[in-house]
Amino acid sequence: MPEAPEVSIAAASEGGYPVLKEDLSPAGAGVPTFKHSRLQRLADRWAHLGFLICSLLVVGLIGGILYFLATRGLAAFLPLAGNTGRALSFSEVFLSADWAPSSDRFGILPFIAGSLGVTGLALLIAAPAGILTGVFIAKMAPAWMRNLMRQVMDLLVGIPSVVYGIFGLTVVLPLVSRTWLADAPASGFAVSALILAVMIVPTIVSLSTDAFESLPAALDEGAQALGSSRWQAIWRVLIPAARPRLLTATVLGLGRAIGEAMAVQMVIGNNPQWMALMRESTDRAPFLRALFTPAATLTTELVQELPNTAAGSTWNNVLFAMGLLLYLLTMVLILATRRLGRGKEA
């Protein structure tokens, strides 16, 4: 970034503009001031207003989404006039695993746990693989391989989620079921997480490649001058130095994974009762069994049930509360990346 001049005389002298010191403004002492026609000045001011309105629209959208989701999502907990059902308490929704909407029981814990589970598993694969691929692209690969990897990641990120879903459904599920499960159905956390991992890996790769490329060259050179091997320099110097931005990359990957709906919905099996199923199972390897138990997440349940519920019903309101939860989670994650970014400068 070139040094920003403190005051911009030309802008300040021109018809009541605030003093701006940004990139596209006329700037610097000694810049001649021009007399612009009235029309020019008018156009300038109206354009400024127009651009401002566009930006405010974006800000308004953030608030608008929150407002509308909250009016519907919180309606489940409030005794409002339009509600057809009773008002629920927070604990019977967020702390209960009992999801039986037709019997008036709305515990969404299975979906929260499902989202966390499948996201966690996906990150377990995608974070190490993505970060290592990032360092490979930035610090090890020859130029042709770097270009190839960029193109591969561009294509992977561009594939629509329904196509990932159909691939999972028609290729991965039958394959896993045939080879490992003696033809038992394979839908559940394992395959969902695998598909999700491939979907979020481009995000993690591109952000961590940037992170490694923006490290000062002296770090790498210094490590090598002190006699470290390629891998030692990567493991002991480069990865620790890039850690804040690698964490940011992982958090953004997490955000993408937790919000993905269609691909997961097509392979996870959509069983809201998965926690009960697990509890009753007498399996000796419950964790392994959980990987191939049909389950459900916040997003998949929304896709699955939203079309079948009437607006204003408690069931419908609880589904919107799940959407609100996802949105709030997004906000928390973005704020977390800000925190991480600030840690880097300190």
Partner: peptide, 9 residues
């Protein structure tokens, strides 16, 4: 935030 908002939301 808008870019990270899940499409289902």
């Amino acid at each position: 935030t808008l870019a990270a908002t899940p499409s289902i939301v």
